[in-house]
Design a protein around this nucleic acid. Sequence first.
DNA 1: AATATTAAAACATCGGATGTTTTAATATTT
DNA 2: AAATATTAAAACATCCGATGTTTTAATATT
Lengths: 278, 278
Amino acid sequence: MTTPNENVIDELLLNLKYKTLKWRDGERMGFKFETVKANRISQNIVEQIRSAILQGELKIGDQLPSEKEFAKHFGVSKSSLREAYRVLEAYGLLEIRQGMSGGAFIKEVDVKTVKDSLVNYFFFQNPGIREYTQIRTFIEPQVVQICAKNITPEDIEYLENNILAMEQEPDGETFVSDLDSAFHKKLVEITGNKIISLIVESVQTALINIKQIVHTDEQFLKMVCNGHRKIVNALKENDPENASKAMIEHINDVEKGMLASKGGSMIITEKGLLKQKH
Amino acid sequence: MTTPNENVIDELLLNLKYKTLKWRDGERMGFKFETVKANRISQNIVEQIRSAILQGELKIGDQLPSEKEFAKHFGVSKSSLREAYRVLEAYGLLEIRQGMSGGAFIKEVDVKTVKDSLVNYFFFQNPGIREYTQIRTFIEPQVVQICAKNITPEDIEYLENNILAMEQEPDGETFVSDLDSAFHKKLVEITGNKIISLIVESVQTALINIKQIVHTDEQFLKMVCNGHRKIVNALKENDPENASKAMIEHINDVEKGMLASKGGSMIITEKGLLKQKH
DNA sequence: AATATTAAAACATCGGATGTTTTAATATTT
DNA sequence: AAATATTAAAACATCCGATGTTTTAATATT
């Protein structure tokens, strides 16, 4: 006999690897199967090509055979192969070009593809503003601590111009969120960590696209500029501690502003493209 | 005349919103166009449906018309509509079922879709192990600080069973990385922050899938179990400071182990599925 | 009441026809 | 000779219709 504790552990292991199988009376079958997906031809081809890419057999720029040719090679219809190409294109792994020397080319997945995917995901998860703020306070203060050690005069110049541009905005409407994104993006790029860059940018994009809150009132704008200026000043003095503090304060100020002005004077972005006043 | 500084700011604004236009002699054109993408029929339909979802007009479970019907509605061929459905399915926004009461249904994007997208992206970015470690040290110590305040006896029990299961592994081969992932996943879930959950899980998935390093030697396994145990002990005592310290130490130990044993005794996962020894 | 059969709806796959885009090669003009 | 215009071909984009397969609801049978 096994002890109760061992049963718990077995259960844990089982759930990790196998789907639980129910049988007529609810008992479990005496043996286990791994889950199997219905095999669509296009899906099969997609997986083969994606694997080839992840295994390094296909490199950026490599051209795949034409639809006709590759379909013949796989022994499937043109349509099925075409679907596979479309899906790989949707994944961002393929670029399909028309014309004489066109065709399907392996492409580096771009950041927009991933961001869109994250936006789709977060749309359904629908995190609160608090959750967005929390992850920012986890990451960005540590980002500026690193910046304070590595920042160059050119970086400083870029950041200061960014602040000037924002202050210069006549009514605080145009590009404000673009400028804000660019400011934070620049900081995170200084760390040279591609993972953190993606995360910070994606969180910002998701916040803008899903929460659709972009402030325009002058008070909010001034607050943002002040926050940014404090951060840059700390960075100029290579002071990690103050930079970190300034960033935390800034993020919390922004959250407070966002929560306060719900329904107040702001701009709602539709589909992240059009802007209109309320 | 504008001052040099204003020019810099104008340039910054310009690059944010418009593509730079080159004209014969390299001068810029006197006016600006926004970039336009070639309009594929399927892409047009994809965007319409995705917009409808993000605008809340289409809800989870809603059924779209059949291929034939919807194609007629759009005034396009069945094939074009079909491609659109395929792409939306690749985005994880649609589930397509065969059979009598089948069809296309709006679906909540699942975490696997996003993770795959991130894996694709990071494959090309190819961050170093150091970058993976860095983002983990940014987030997970703060995660356990929160856990230390909120953790329940049931959570503790789960985590302790997880450690027992890992210690019980006969030769350290099976499920070790699954158990490790489950441990960290559990911790981050306690915070209740869906954004952070996704990030932590994705970073772990990408590390495993791309770097393809999973340790099996007993020494490494023991080190992981010890690290986990220290963390859980601190959590049991609701001690945020020690939990955070234990997590930092654990992450750094794991990195050291990974860097040390490159080429040593470990398991390479192929396509993240098959496992084989080297 | 349980099981087996059947019919229909909807997707999956196929293959061919026609249109469009892009570029390389060629011809024409200056 | 250089610049420009034309042409041809390759490859994708779109459309269409036919056939196959899957799934389920309805029906028939046991």
